[in-house]
């Protein structure tokens, strides 16, 4: 159960990326933005991208940078993989979750674990950008000249203690989530920046099978 909660919180972080210093104002047309998000969810069948994750440990004045690659395929296939400086992978394949670290591969059945069901829903919703429909966050809509920014404040007890805020960024065309940032109450943060993104490219189902 503990491992499940850790994973739940961690997966949220894994879905977020770097915020740029910009002046953000309240979004003028939130209805139009939500419509674009809906369209994005419907028109995106696959996403493939490299990412750089930077964990900023404020008190220790240390940063841990890791690189990886992720693939998403509708309806419910996700592969989130760290390649350097360590190997770690999470694969969601419909009702199965596989976690592979450097020492062990563990298989979980989503239906037998409510927490994993929650993980799946949040992970997929984050990648597709429709996390604001989940009802698990209070959402503040902002925009700048360059992009859109959503500030998500957790409403769920247990998540509030370890997560202060999530910033989710979209390009002006609202084609995909471009950056995310997670802030913890302690001042630490996790930032993930996506690069080399491919939308709707062919991804083999075999990518989502781990033995």
């Amino acid at each position: 159960m503990l491992r499940s909660y850790l994973l739940l919180a961690g997966l949220l972080i894994a879905s977020f990326a770097i915020a740029q210093k910009s002046d953000y104002k309240p979004m003028k047309d939130t209805t139009g933005f939500k419509n674009k998000i809906d369209l994005m969810g419907k028109s995106t069948n696959t996403i493939e991208s490299d990412f750089v994750q930077v964990k900023d440990l404020s008190m220790m004045s240390e940063k841990i940078t890791s690189n990886g690659h992720f693939c998403f395929k509708k309806e419910n296939l996700l592969r989130w993989e760290y390649t350097t400086p360590y190997k770690y992978m999470i694969v969601i394949n419909k009702d199965k979750i596989v976690i592979k670290d450097e020492a062990k591969t563990t298989h979980y059945d989503m239906n037998s674990n409510k927490v994993f069901k929650e993980i799946n829903d949040l992970m997929i919703a984050s990648v597709q950008g429709n996390i604001l429909k989940s009802g698990k966050f209070k959402v503040v809509f902002l925009e700048s000249d360059k992009d859109y920014k959503l500030e998500l404040y957790p409403l769920i007890k247990g998540m509030k203690e370890s997560l202060k805020k999530i910033n989710m960024y979209f390009d002006k065309g609202v084609t995909s989530v471009i950056r995310l940032e997670m802030e913890e109450p302690t001042g630490d943060s996790t930032k993930i920046e996506f690069m080399n993104k491919k939308l709707n490219a062919e991804i083999a189902d075999a990518k989502f099978i781990v033995k």
């Binding site: 850790l6 994973l7 919180a9 961690g10 997966l11 972080i13 894994a14 994750q53 964990k55 440990l57 220790m60 841990i64 890791s66 989130w80 760290y82 360590y86 770690y88 999470i90 670290d101 370890s162 997670m182 913890e184 302690t186 630490d188 996790t190």
Partner: peptide
């Protein structure tokens, strides 16, 4: 400090 690979403080 022990954090998960995906950044969560343990």
């Amino acid at each position: 400090l022990f954090i998960s690979e995906i950044g969560m403080k343990i």
